[in-house]
Design a protein around this nucleic acid. Sequence first.
DNA 1: AAAATGATTATG
DNA 2: ATAATCATTTTC
Length: 226
Amino acid sequence: MTNSFEQGKNKPRFTPHSSLPTPLDPFLESPARLIEPNWCDRPSTQLAPDLLGCTLYRQLSSGMLIRATIVETEAYAPGDPACHAYKGLSRRNAAMFGPPGHSYVYLIYGMYHCLNVVSESTGIGSAVLIRALELNAIPSHLTPKQTAKPHRIAAGPGKLCRALAIDRTLDGILYHPDNGLWLVHRPRTIPKNQIVQTTRIGITKAADKPWRWYLKNSQSVSKLAA
DNA sequence: AAAATGATTATG
DNA sequence: ATAATCATTTTC
């Protein structure tokens, strides 16, 4: 399994590693806290706000474990012209039509990857884009420039994939510790007034749909409030 | 404001 | 075959 982060000069070498022991982690000591496919089997407009405050884990082949809180999401739904699945199944978007609770990773603008959580049952093309994370630590493979402002390291869908060494080799996988990428439920409930709902970013089609959500006081969202 | 950078999709 | 698009980020 090769990962684009392994190629090219100055790029770190990372591959998901199933042979590593499951990391010791307080949130995983209760197995029920792992987010499973059934929980994701509903419309992306419901799943997206519910993913705020949940934890995304990434384990690299080095053994390094990155823990991150999801602070910004967007929903992409069937019948939504901005959704990659809108024009039907293709090689790129196949994971969107796959089972819920799996990943959809795509390359955008030739240089950044974006990470999604697939929602709804197999055959329905919908997903939630993870747009920003708050990291618990600074990944060692990033440059000093990239880590100059720690709370901005994963503030944006392309930046968070860079920070977590996520590329298309992780497309279509089940979110699970065995795959080096998994999700865990919120450690505590989030008051509704801490969640802001607005329009999506960076799209021209269906730009009026209010399908972006973020945590109100987070300094790690892709676009800070004015 | 505009470049960087490449896969995917639309068009001839 | 060729052009246009693209759920972005950084730099000038």
